[in-house]
Simulated scan of single mutants.
Amino acid sequence: MGYPKDLLSSRAVIKHGSFAIIPPEGLVNNVIPNFEKCTISIVASPKLGASFVQYLVDMESEGKTTSGFGGNGIESFIFVREGEIKVAIDNDEYELTSGGYVYCPPTKKMNLSNTSKKSAKFLLYKQTYQPLEDHKPWVVVGNINELQEKIYDDMENVTIIDLLPCDLAFDMNMHILTFKPSGCHPFVETHVQEHGAYIMKGKGVYYLDDKWTPVKKGDYIWFGPYVPQAVYCVGREELSYIYSKDCNRDVEL
């Protein structure tokens, strides 16, 4: 990038153990074993206070993982933002395009590769699975462009898409929440669940803890448990983000 043209500044807001807003301008590349021809930023981890790890990945043409991702009690998830990615699990292969995703259960590993001529951008996620007796999750493959939006909490200008089944076998879910201009949450939420959210389009003003902060496309937000949260969509474009949620489990003591 060379020398700065102005005073150094950042929109990042980091409150360890509480919440974080991470804009794309401050991301750096993390070298991670078993990923070839990839630019990777770790945007959420236990070092921040999260119970999961989330990555923003740019995989070049012919990029790949050289060993499986996840498994051994770790569930994983990939969502393709741009380009094409091939996902291999056991003897099955899945060709993902923009909007495509795969959930991989904790008993299996996924291998990723980019066999196209263009780079691909995707979100990658992993967390320790919390087993539930007589319930076992399975591989889930889909594309958000083929899923139906549902009205969110009786609000005509806010919609939600569930990416994973609402089944007790799953201790997590992924959703896409979309707000039309002037749309907002119906109330300020305060709950035990934590989220990791990537803003795919639009602009908004997010209420986190006790402060309203502007956010926009490309920002990543981590929400810790019990942090009051809500958003207003601002501007002329829809605000839309994909976010993770822990669910279907009691709190362990």
Rank of each mutant, 00 (worst) to 15 (best):
S113I: 13
I32K: 04
D92K: 14
P106L: 13
D167P: 14
K150D: 08
K203T: 07
V251C: 02
A169D: 11
S18P: 01
K15P: 02
T66E: 03
P24A: 02
Y207V: 05
V139M: 09
D167E: 12
E93I: 12
V188C: 13
K47W: 02
E156I: 15
Y3I: 15
N111L: 13
E149F: 09
V102P: 00
K47E: 05
K201Y: 06
Y94G: 04
A50P: 01
A230V: 08
Y206S: 12
C233P: 08
E133F: 15
S119Y: 05
I161C: 02
D250N: 15
P131N: 13
A12C: 10
V234K: 02
M110D: 00
Y232C: 12
G70K: 04
P46H: 09
D162F: 08
V80F: 07
S240P: 00
P106S: 13
K150Y: 09
A12W: 05
D58T: 15
E60A: 12
P225K: 08
G196N: 02
M174E: 05
F69S: 05
C247H: 12
E237M: 06
T39E: 08
D134A: 14
T97K: 08
C247V: 15
L253G: 04
N173I: 12
A20Q: 09
Y103N: 05
S9N: 13
Y94C: 11
F79T: 13
Q127Y: 03
G17I: 09
E62N: 12
V158T: 06
P105V: 10
A88V: 15
A197H: 02
E146W: 10
V234E: 03
Y220A: 03
L132H: 11
S244W: 04
Y206N: 11
C166Y: 11
I32V: 14
E75L: 07
H185T: 06
M174L: 13
A20T: 09
S45T: 14
F223G: 00
I144P: 09
I85H: 01
